[in-house]
Nucleic acid binder design. Structure first.
Length: 574
RNA sequence: GCGGUCGUAGCUCAGCUGGAUAGAGUACCAGACUACGAAUCUGGUGGUCGCAGGUUCGACUCCUGCCGACCGCGCCA
C-alpha cells in the first residue's frame, strides 16, 4: 500500500524535477516517526549539481510542490528532508479496501500478481529413523515461512521435503533389525511405538558398534545388498521409511507445515551415473588421487564427484537433484534451507552447475541458518546424545500454555486446541524473530517466554481485536468517513500500510525475521492505540466509532495474515 | 594456514536497498485493572554500535586491517 503512495508521489515529483521517476522512488523512505510524515524525500544528492545547501533545496521544492500533489495534505522541509503527510482519510480507505479485497477472497493482503516463475524450495529434510531435533525446527519453519513469502510475491511454489533416506546407516539399521542378536533379544516395541523403537535400535546399535567394529562392517555389507536391489532388505528399508514418515506427519501437523512434494535422496540413485557422464562430457572431470573431481577456481577446494572406489557422493547427488529441480520440476529459482555448516558444499555445487554452463546456477540460493548450541558444551550432537528434541520443546511449551490458560482464562472452551496454538506459536515465533544466520544458545527460559516480544504477544493482540469486534453487533462499513487524527491512530495506520513492502523485502532477503519484527511493531502501535482511544464507547460519535472499529478490523486481518505467513495460527480466544 | 559468518544497553536481540536525537524485550525502579481481555499499557535508569583506518554531504550499515567467538576445508551426509 505504501508502494502505491511511493509510485504516485515519485511520478508527480519527477514531472517537476530533472530526476527520473525510478530514482525518486528508490530514494523515498519511510520515516521512523509519524512527526516526519508518511514519506520522506532526502535532497542531499541534489546539492552537488545544484550547488546549493540541502535545506535551501528542500525549501524550494516545498514551495514548488506545496498543495499540488494529490492526496498530500502537507509538505514540510526539515533540514535536507522533504516530508510528505498524506490525507488521513485517503490512507485509511486505501488500507481498508486492501483489507476488504482480502476478506472477500479477491487478493490476499499484500499479495503480488501471479508470476510465471517457479520457486522450488527444499526445507525441513530430516534424516529417516532419527527424531527431529530443535535444529530441524529452523530448517522446517524458516522454510515454511520463506515458502509462504514466495507465494505472496506471486511465484509458483513447490515446497519440497528432501528426506535423508539413503546411506550406510540404513544398512546398519536393517542389519540391526533383522539379524543382530542383541537387537532381537531386546524386544523393541515396533507395533505400539514403532518410531521410538526404531530410534532406540539406532542408538543401541551405534553404541555396540563402537566397541565392536565388526558390526559396522556387517552394516556396510547389508547396505551393499540394499544398493544391489536385495528385495528383503529393501522391504525393511521401506518399513523404516513408513514409520518415519508417520512420525514426521504428526509433527508437521502440529507445526501446521505442508509440502507439495516429499522426495528422498534415493530418488536419484539411478540418475547419478548419467550426471557424472554429463559432467565428464562438459570436460570438467579430472582425476586426483584416484578420485574424479571438478577443480574450481579461486579459493575453493575441488568438488569430489566420484570416490576412488567408484561410488558417488553427497555433491553428486545434489548436482543431479538441482538439474532435476530445474529441468524436471521447472524451477526457476532453487532454494535450499539448510544449516550454515553446509556453506562450502553449496558454494561448490552451485559453482559446478555454473561451470556446466547453467545460467540458472545464479538463481540457486543456500538459505543458511545458524546452529542451535549449548552455552556450556557447544555444538549439539545426536550421536553423542546431547541434543534437544523438537517434540520435547513443543510439548513443554504446550503444557506451559495450558497452565497459563488455567490461571488466566479457566472458562475457555477448546483449551487443548488453544494451548497447542499458543504453545507452538511461541516456539515458532521465537525461532523466526531473530536473524536466521545467527547461532542460538539454547535456553529453556527464553524459548518458553510468553511475554514481551513473543508469539503469544502477537496472538494476544489479534485476540483483543477479535474480542472487540465480537462485542460490536452492527455492520462496519469498509469506507470510513472521517480521518482518525490522534497520534496513536496515525501511527497505527502508517504502520499497517507498510505490510506489502515488508513481505517483499522479507522474501527478497529470505528473512522471515523482517516480517516477525514488523508484526511486533504493529502490536506495539495497536497496544498504544488501544489504551489511549476508546472504541466501544457510547459517548463516541458514530462515525469515529465506525472508523476505529474498521481500524481494529484491519489490524486483526493483517496480524492474522502475517502470522499465517510465518506459519503460526491465530486463536479466536486465549 | 585458507575460506565463510557473527561481534549493538547487565542479559537476549531489532535496525529494510547507507539517512533525521541508535530501538525493543528482559532485569531493576515508579505508576495504570468496579474499564473495549493486565499474556497489556505509561514513565525512568541503562550504549565511545569489538578496535583502528578509509569511502561518502551522511556509516551500526559499504571497503581494508587487527582482535575475539563460531562454522567449514578431497574421497561422511
Amino acid at each position: 500500500m505504501i508502494d502505491i503512495l511511493k509510485a504516485q508521489l515519485s511520478s508527480e515529483l519527477a514531472s517537476g524535477t530533472q530526476l527520473p521517476k525510478e530514482q525518486i522512488y528508490q530514494l523515498l523512505e519511510n520515516p521512523k516517526s509519524i512527526e516526519h510524515g508518511h514519506l520522506a524525500f532526502p535532497v542531499f544528492m541534489l546539492a552537488k549539481e545544484l550547488k546549493k545547501a540541502p535545506p535551501l533545496i528542500a525549501q524550494e521544492l516545498k514551495a514548488k510542490f506545496d498543495g499540488k500533489i494529490s492526496h498530500v495534505e502537507q509538505i514540510t522541509s526539515v533540514g535536507g528532508y522533504l516530508n510528505f503527510t498524506f490525507d488521513l482519510k485517503y490512507l485509511q480507505n486505501l488500507l481498508s479496501h486492501a483489507v476488504a479485497d482480502s476478506t472477500s477472497g479477491k487478493v490476499r493482503l499484500g499479495y503480488q500478481k501471479p508470476k510465471n516463475e517457479r520457486v522450488v524450495i527444499d526445507y525441513s529434510s530430516p534424516n529417516v529413523a532419527k527424531p527431529m531435533s530443535i535444529g530441524h525446527l529452523r530448517a522446517t519453519m524458516i522454510g515454511q515461512a520463506v515458502r509462504n513469502l514466495a507465494d505472496s510475491q506471486g511465484y509458483q511454489v513447490t515446497g519440497l521435503n528432501y528426506l535423508g533416506d539413503w546411506g550406510v546407516q540404513f544398512g546398519k539399521l536393517a542389519y540391526a533389525y533383522s539379524e543382530w542378536p542383541a537387537g532381537k533379544n531386546k524386544n523393541y516395541d515396533f507395533t505400539q511405538k514403532p518410531f521410538e523403537a526404531l530410534y532406540q535400535l539406532y542408538v543401541d546399535f551405534h553404541k555396540a558398534a563402537e566397541e565392536n567394529p565388526e558390526l559396522d562392517a556387517k552394516g556396510s555389507l547389508t547396505f551393499k545388498r540394499l544398493e544391489e536391489g536385495d528385495k528383503e532388505i529393501e522391504k525393511i528399508w521401506k518399513m523404516f521409511l513408513d514409520i518415519s514418515l508417520n512420525e514426521y506427519k504428526r509433527i508437521y501437523g502440529l507445526l501446521n507445515v505442508n509440502f507439495d512434494l516429499i522426495q528422498g535422496e534415493s530418488f536419484y540413485n539411478d540418475k547419478l551415473e548419467s550426471t557424472v557422464e554429463l559432467i565428464n562430457k562438459k570436460g570438467l572431470l579430472a582425476e586426483s588421487d584416484g578420485a574424479q573431481v571438478v577443480f574450481l577456481d579461486d579459493d575453493m577446494p575441488p568438488c569430489i564427484i566420484k570416490k576412488s572406489d567408484g561410488a558417488s557422493l553427497y555433491a553428486t547427488r545434489d548436482i543431479a537433484s538441482a538439474i532435476h529441480r530445474h529441468d524436471g520440476m521447472k524451477g526457476d529459482h532453487l532454494l535450499y534451507v539448510v544449516g550454515v555448516d553446509q556453506n562450502l558444499h553449496f558454494r561448490q555445487v552451485f559453482k559446478v552447475l555454473e561451470k556446466m554452463g547453467y545460467d540458472w546456477a545464479k538463481r540457486c540460493h543456500h538459505v543458511a541458518f545458524g546452529m542451535y548450541r549449548f552455552k556450556d558444551i557447544g555444538k549439539m550432537s545426536t550421536r553423542k546424545g546431547n541434543v534437544i528434541f523438537m517434540d520435547d520443546v513443543l510439548n513443554k511449551s504446550i503444557e506451559l500454555a495450558e497452565k497459563i490458560i488455567e490461571e488466566k482464562n479457566p472458562d475457555l472452551s477448546d483449551k487443548k486446541l488453544i494451548a497447542q496454538q499458543v504453545g507452538v506459536g511461541a516456539i515458532v515465533f521465537n525461532d523466526l524473530s531473530s536473524d536466521r544466520i545467527k547461532n542460538v544458545d539454547f535456553d529453556w527460559d527464553r524459548v518458553l517466554d510468553f511475554e514481551g516480544d513473543s508469539g503469544p504477544y502477537v496472538q494476544y493482540c489479534a485476540v483483543r481485536c477479535k474480542s472487540i469486534l465480537r462485542k460490536f453487533e452492527g455492520e462496519i462499513p469498509v469506507e470510513t468517513e472521517i480521518p482518525l487524527a490522534s497520534s496513536e491512530e496515525k501511527t497505527l495506520v502508517k504502520q499497517l500500510l507498510l505490510y506489502p513492502e515488508i513481505l517483499s523485502i522479507s522474501y527478497k532477503n529470505f528473512k522471515p525475521s523482517f516480517l516477525a519484527q514488523y508484526l511486533l511493531e504493529v502490536c506495539k502501535a495497536f497496544g498504544s492505540f488501544y489504551t489511549h482511544n476508546k472504541i466501544l464507547d457510547d459517548n463516541l460519535d458514530e462515525k469515529t466509532k465506525l472508523a476505529r472499529l474498521r481500524l481494529v478490523q484491519c489490524t486483526e486481518t493483517l496480524l492474522t495474515e502475517g502470522l499465517k505467513t510465518l506459519g503460526i495460527q491465530s486463536p479466536q480466544k486465549m
